[in-house]
Simulated assay, not measured.
Amino acid sequence: MSRLVNRVAAIGAAAASAALLAYFREQFAEGLKWLVSPIIRRLPWHREALAHSPQHGLSSNLTIADLFLLTTDGKRAVYAKAGDYVVGSEPLSSYFEGVTTSGDARNFATEMGVILETKTEHGFHVSEIDLGALLPAGTHFHNEYRAELYDSFTSEEEHWTQEIALPTKHFTLRVHFPKKRPPILLRCKRLVGLAEYQMKTSVRTATLFGRPSVMWEIKEPQLGEIYKLEWRW
């Protein structure tokens, strides 16, 4: 009887130790995230990627991000982001647009103003756009930012992520596929830290610009949220 009691006690102690270990691992991970988050925010590529966020007071009524997959092998693509912007409480003469890709990005262009420079850090390409004038508070303007992407979508299963870097009332993500290689599977996700959560939402398919296209509409997205569209083709 005493051996049985000892074994039960040993099993209980082992289970409690495992539970405590799991708990402390979780707490350590959360503590580490809290500890390093101020440092991460100061990293140069993080600052530049968020340089066009709320401190400039710029917002958008409508933002449309288009990804044109030009070749069936995925080696050539064009990214175009168009926005109907509103200047906030302070006058604005320049702002930032950016794109990130697993391959190479070149030939950055802006419809309005000129690109002063494009800095590249750890896959982030951030362009400073001079609008050519000091726009008063409350000014509405439209602009489109474009970049050519190379060697970015060469796998059978690929994805595109988009961060809501400016407050926007409505965001639309559109991916345009080659005629000979449309998508056969689609997944919509939201990224939170290192975790991915599949969303209960639907995308529409249509023919746009003579291509099979996928459209994902998001009403009133939250600033800083990251959306991910995955496809198998």
Rank of each mutant, 00 (worst) to 15 (best):
M1N: 07
R3A: 13
R7Q: 15
I11F: 09
G12T: 00
A14N: 05
A15F: 06
A16N: 00
A18Y: 09
A19Y: 04
Y23W: 13
E26G: 14
E30T: 12
P38A: 04
R41V: 01
R41F: 01
E48Y: 14
A49G: 09
A49R: 14
S59R: 14
T63F: 02
A65I: 03
F68S: 04
T72Y: 01
D73W: 11
D73V: 10
A77P: 00
V78S: 10
Y79D: 04
Y79A: 13
Y79L: 13
K81C: 07
A82N: 08
A82C: 15
D84Q: 12
G88L: 04
E90L: 05
L92S: 02
S94M: 11
Y95C: 10
G103E: 06
A105H: 05
M112Q: 11
V114I: 09
K119I: 06
E121N: 08
H122L: 13
V126N: 05
V126T: 14
I129Y: 03
I129S: 05
L135Q: 04
A137M: 02
N143F: 01
N143K: 13
R146I: 01
A147M: 03
L149G: 02
L149Y: 05
E158R: 11
W160E: 10
E163N: 07
A165P: 01
P167L: 04
T172K: 13
L173M: 15
R174S: 09
V175K: 03
P183Q: 10
R187I: 00
C188P: 02
V192Y: 04
G193M: 07
A195T: 06
E196K: 12
Q198A: 11
R204S: 15
T207E: 14
R211P: 00
P212H: 13
P212R: 14
M215D: 05
W216L: 10
E217A: 03
I218A: 04
K219W: 08
E220P: 02
E220M: 10
E220I: 01
Q222A: 12
Q222G: 03
Q222D: 08
G224T: 05
I226D: 04
K228G: 09
R232T: 09
